[in-house]
Design a protein around this nucleic acid. Sequence first.
DNA 1: GTTCTAGAAC
DNA 2: GTTCTAGAAC
Length: 193
Amino acid sequence: MSKRSLNNTSSNTKAKKSKYWSLGLVDAMKNPDSIVKKTEHCVIIKDKYPKAKIHYLVLPQDNISSIYMLNRSHVKLIEEFGKLFKEIQDEVEVTLRAGFHAVPSMQRLHMHIISGDMVSPCLKTKVHWNSFTTDFFMLFEDVQQQLKENGSIKKISPELHKSLLATELQCNQCLFKPKNMPQLKEHLFIHNK
DNA sequence: GTTCTAGAAC
DNA sequence: GTTCTAGAAC
């Protein structure tokens, strides 16, 4: 092997390693410690960095990268997502929400199931907050309806993506508008005690 | 997705 | 001087 190809191999390996984070969910799906429930077509895992007291992910066993790969053949799969959401909801006292990020960071389709408290040490940034409290969080019911009616999920524009994540901070339980994240987190903590 | 950290904001 | 945010990561 030439010196050049050796160098290429080395840099490719580094590049792969540094970009493999986006496939982290595929590993988590195989990890018994993170698995909550498993069915023929789906797996439910605990989110590794939960943004609320309850935060799970529902994923398909099949290699589907995102909601934008869904078509009419996946209506049954999404119905199972809804069924699993109901099952999790019935196991807890608080109201949960289920939905998808409009622009997901991680490959492999995943539906968030999350409680409304938003109390968690892993909730740190404005992007974290806005990705669960603005329209960036596409509710399961709306995604399911869109898939049934249109046979696909429409992507949001880069402009809308940017503006949703830049939305000014606003409590999800009252009208309070915190100045920064530490203030929001303290406020959420008080809501919960 | 997170981590790290420069420099903005206070 | 300290807190906080936002962008790079080869």
